[in-house]
Every structure is written in C-alpha cells, then in structure tokens.
Amino acid sequence: MSVVDPCCPQISPPTIDVAVRSVALKDVEPLSWESLSASATLVATPCGTPIRTIVTGRRFITTGVYASRKAGRPQPYESMNERAFFMHCEVDTEVLDYRAQPFRLEFAQEGRRRTYIVDCVRLMADGSIEVVEVKSDPRALHDHDYAEKLHAIRTICEQVGWRFRLVFKMALLEPAAVHQNVLDVQSWRMTEYTSADVFRIVEAFRRTGRAVLGDLVEHFASRALAFAKLKAMMVGRIVRIDLTQPIGNATPVALVSDSREAWK
C-alpha cells in the first residue's frame, strides 16, 4: 500500500501532486500499480514536499534551492546538474509541471529490499509523466548494481504508464548556445506580466499567425520590458521563443498551442 495523505489539498489541475496520487491512492482505477503493490511501494510526503529530508533524518544533503515560477514552489537540488535540469524544465514549454524528489520507491530485487528517491518527476503537455534521473555522465552505469537498480525502476515506471529517462550533463550544457539561452530566459522567469499583456500578444498572433521578437516590442513600453516579459511568458507557456540562435529582434516566436485555446 502506498503511503500518502489523501486529505492533503491538491493544486488543481493538472499537477504532479494529482498525477502521483492518481497512481498511489488505493481506491483509484487499477492503473497496474495495484499489481505491483506486493513488491513495490510509492512513499510520498503530505502536500507534495520533497521527500529527501524525511528519509535522511538529520542529514541534510541539499546543496541549494531553485525558485520555480512554473511549479510555484522551491525545488531543492543536490548537484549543479540537477539545477541545470530544473532550468531547462522551467523554460521547456512541453513541461507543464515538475517536482524535485516528490517520492521514493521501495521494492524487492533479487531478495533485497531497495529504495530509490526520484530526482525529478515531470508532467508533460501531452499528459504523460516522466521520472527523471540526472547524472554527470554514463560512467555511473558501469556499476552493475546501480544499473540493475535503474532497470528495475524503469520496469516499475513502464507498468504504471510512466516514462523513465536518464539525463546526462552533456545533454544539458550542449549545444552551448542553447544552454546560454536557457540561462537567459529562466533568469527573467519572475518578471510580472498581466492578462492584458497576454491578450495583446495572443491577438498579435491571430492577426499575423507568426512573429519575431522585434514585431512584439510595440505592445510594450520599451524593448527591454518587452524582452523581459516575453521571456517570462515562455516560462508561463504563453509563447515559445526559438532558443537555437542568439536571442534578438529576428528571433522567431510562436504561440504555445494550448495558450491559444485558453484565450479564444
């Protein structure tokens, strides 16, 4: 049986909290988690807070906290690689929501009781759930025991309809130009923008169907303010800025499809 607090208020909808509980709660439709309950247990904290400090007792190993606008909460990280991954999640318009260490899995493997604390769980725009392990490089997989553990985690995820991904440092930092743009965009994530700002941008796209950053400047008081708000809107999944080239007046911008629907 999974350990969760069913009375905990849920952020609605959709959130990682809801997604985890849809699998963890005993009285939901059988998404195949019930069939795993004899060998695997999902342990979550009340209200979706990170689980690491509960597992380690007095030993706090968190090295920092990333303030996420997208998730609406701080995300603890234990390496600079995890921090870089959170920045990518913040900017990626395909990511609806994400959580650092939202639960641990306890399972039996070859007669041994194993535990696994998830680095990150992401709710994607297509409704899928990704469980992500962030590592420096593939050399970690040379450890046979660790590789077997991850294989078991992948199998558990697949049986409940989730994806399991390994993300390495190289994928986060290269191409260097893209990484620099991610750093830039996320640095403006807390910039305030209003519903009127969003309405004007959506209307601009309705008239033209496409735009570059320079076209959208006229809707704001200044170029600097326009760039700051549009970068924050990317975090808010209103627009998608092309990050494959230097960001400037000629940078292509698209409207995120579900934001278009929301403003009809």
Rank of each mutant, 00 (worst) to 15 (best):
V3A: 05
P6E: 12
P6A: 08
C7E: 11
C8I: 00
S12I: 13
S12T: 13
P13Y: 12
T15V: 08
I16P: 00
V18R: 09
V18H: 08
D27Y: 12
V28I: 11
E29Y: 04
L31K: 14
L31A: 10
S32G: 01
W33K: 03
L36R: 08
L36N: 05
S37F: 05
S37Y: 07
V43G: 01
A44E: 12
P46Q: 09
P46L: 05
C47V: 06
C47E: 11
T49N: 07
P50V: 01
I51M: 09
T53M: 14
I54F: 14
I54D: 08
V55H: 00
R58G: 15
R59M: 12
R59C: 12
F60N: 14
I61A: 11
G64Y: 11
V65M: 12
A67N: 07
A67Q: 14
A71M: 02
R73W: 05
P74L: 10
Q75G: 02
Y77S: 02
M87V: 05
E90R: 10
T93D: 09
T93V: 15
T93H: 04
V95P: 03
D97N: 04
Y98D: 02
A100P: 00
F103Q: 06
E106S: 03
Q109Y: 06
E110F: 06
G111N: 08
R113M: 11
T115D: 05
I117H: 00
I117F: 00
C120M: 07
V121E: 06
S128A: 10
S128E: 12
I129F: 02
E130C: 03
V131E: 02
V134L: 09
S136K: 13
S136R: 15
A140Y: 13
H142D: 12
D143T: 10
Y146S: 07
L150W: 05
L150R: 05
R154W: 00
T155Y: 01
T155A: 10
C157Q: 04
Q159L: 14
V160T: 05
G161P: 07
G161N: 04
R163A: 11
L166E: 09
M170Y: 11
L173E: 13
P175C: 05
A176L: 06
N181Q: 13
N181K: 08
L183R: 14
T194D: 04
F199M: 11
F199Y: 15
V202I: 15
A204K: 10
R206P: 02
R207D: 08
R207L: 11
A211E: 06
L216F: 03
V217H: 02
A224Q: 15
A226I: 03
K229R: 15
K229F: 04
L230T: 06
R237K: 14
R240C: 12
I241V: 15
D242I: 03
D242C: 07
Q245D: 03
P246V: 03
N249F: 10
L255D: 01
S259G: 04
R260W: 07
E261G: 00
W263E: 13
